[in-house]
Amino acid sequence: MARAGAFIVLLAVVAAVVGPWVVPFDPAAQQLALRLEGPSATHWFGLDELGRDIFARVLAGARISLLVGLVVVGVSSTMGIALGSVAGYFGGRVDEAISRLIDILLAFPGLLLAIALVAVLGPSLTNVVLALSLIGWVGYARLVRGQVLRAREFEFVQAARALGAATPRILVRHIIPSALPAVTVQATLGMGGAILAEAALSFLGLGVQPPTPSWGTMLNYGRGHLLDAPHLTIFPGLAIAMLVLGFNFLGDGLRDRLDPATHGRRL
């Protein structure tokens, strides 16, 4: 499963990097005379409402999706690791303050806070990344806090402390590395989550704005052509589902390898 996931993700990365040079169509070039034309040997995924090649736009959209995923996961995991380890290691009032903030942010279901933030900040790629990062760190912080609470009591950590190692060194060299396997799994699944969230916001008209090709925006415009041009809906959606499935397969596979508790015997 992990291999299948890695293959899908690798394929998407290659398509995103080299695709736009290989495909002979500019994702922004319009052929209005051919608008809404279905898939053909020339235009594999057909053309959209402005006569733009959907295959070229799907490949260009992969860049946006992967970029959003990487930045959101990068920023939120860094914030989460920093705040979670500080909360877990120091405890007391610092932990209390960070934990209450986590509780409040977790009181908002999934995308809702992102919708709210983008609604007031205005729809744009930057604001989507900002909103998803501001919310995304919570999951990492909670995870790392728990891991640090456990690792704090490990003998090698106690030994490092007894030897006089400074707190930042103990955190960076001894405690945070013990949380990294769990963070890696969460980050892999988080890539899929961030890609899905960006697509959802763009689908609602709150994310990436035209003419930038985003899979969610393409689906949003496809909604108006369900009757006469379903290919506008089918291909961008398939791309989202495949890439998210790839990250989910990969994350699940990694978790199975890193967590021995998931192995068991049959009845």
Binding site: F203, L219, P230, G237, I240, V244, L245
Partner: peptide, 29 residues
């Protein structure tokens, strides 16, 4: 199950509408 998690509802919804409302005409869109 993993596919169910990966398929976004903003894609599944229109797909279901294409099949069951537009093509088959069984359900209202």
């Amino acid at each position: 199950a993993l596919m169910g998690i990966s398929v976004p509802n903003f894609w599944l919804g229109p797909l279901l509408a294409i099949v069951f409302a537009v093509e088959l005409g069984w359900l209202p869109v």
